[in-house]
């Protein structure tokens, strides 16, 4: 498996004490697979993605990228991973081209010029190479973050709300880009509230609620489950049913 999450838990310290954002979560994503991670606000999706990316340390459990433990062997694990967060965090003093060059240096990208040019075209960033993040719209900044994630040949891609801020053309292009990366063999974990996107792009869905995994399978598998049989066939209907918000 390209991505393996095994009995992962994450606890935060808060004003009222501690609370568990993710509790005993296990799943895996195979090469070429696109898995959708969905759930209501506070379900633990972003905590899960950030922990896989090495931003947050797991309180318990193990996260492996191509067999490399994110905590015990972080450099090899991170080398194989690309994380595209929902909020575009960029260095406000580096241009678009410099961001791509920086990432290429850090990840050791060989054919930087060709890959960068292709990506800038693919993400409609051509002509913006010398722009600073402050001169770009939010959607453009989101595209820069995605370009930085795709400029290297990562085996595992994590997308957190990848369509936020994109226009309809950008949304269509992004869907195609995600599908193309999976066809090239990348394992993709995608978190989104846009259930129609998940339904359209993903081959499998994990539904989380209050830090726990409450459903995991293909649409057919979920729809065929005895407890969900009456919910309906769309992902939206299944989502509302399993999270207890269904009619």
């Amino acid at each position: 498996m390209a991505l393996a999450v095994d009995h992962f838990s994450r606890t935060y310290r808060a004003a009222s004490g501690t609370f568990t954002a993710v509790d005993d979560l296990s799943f895996a994503v195979a090469p070429g697979e696109i898995v959708g991670l969905i759930g209501p606000n506070g379900a633990g999706k972003t905590t899960t993605l950030r922990s896989i990316a090495g931003i947050l340390r797991p309180t318990a459990g193990v996260v492996r990228i191509d067999g490399h433990d994110v905590v015990a062997d972080p450099i090899e694990a991170k080398r194989r991973l690309a994380f595209m967060p929902d909020e575009p965090h960029l260095f406000e003093y580096l241009t678009v081209a410099e961001h791509l060059r920086l990432v290429s240096r850090l990840y050791g990208v060989d054919d930087f010029d060709r890959r960068a040019a292709t990506l800038l075209d693919e993400l409609e960033l051509a002509g913006k190479e010398r722009s600073l993040p402050g001169e770009l719209s939010r959607g453009m900044r989101q595209k820069v973050v995605i370009a930085c994630g795709l400029v290297r040949q990562a085996t595992t891609l994590l997308f957190d709300e990848p369509l936020t801020g994109l226009d309809p053309i950008g949304i269509r292009r992004m869907r195609n880009t995600i599908a193309a990366r999976a066809q090239q063999g990348a394992a993709i974990l995608l978190s989104s509230h846009l259930l129609h996107l998940v339904e359209e792009v993903c081959s499998r869905v994990i539904i989380m609620d209050r830090g726990r995994k409450i459903a995991d399978g293909t649409f057919e598998e979920l729809a065929a489950r005895a407890d969900l049989a009456t919910a309906g066939s769309s992902l939206e209907q299944i989502f509302f049913r399993v999270t207890g918000h269904g009619a």
Binding site: E92, T95, S104, R105, V109, L132, G134, E135
Partner: peptide
């Protein structure tokens, strides 16, 4: 503008693609 006080001026500094982090 993300509170950016920076201008996209040329610095004359180009990051080499390989070397120490």
């Amino acid at each position: 503008a993300q509170a950016s006080p920076y201008r996209a001026s040329r610095t004359g500094l180009t990051l080499a693609l390989f070397g120490r982090p």
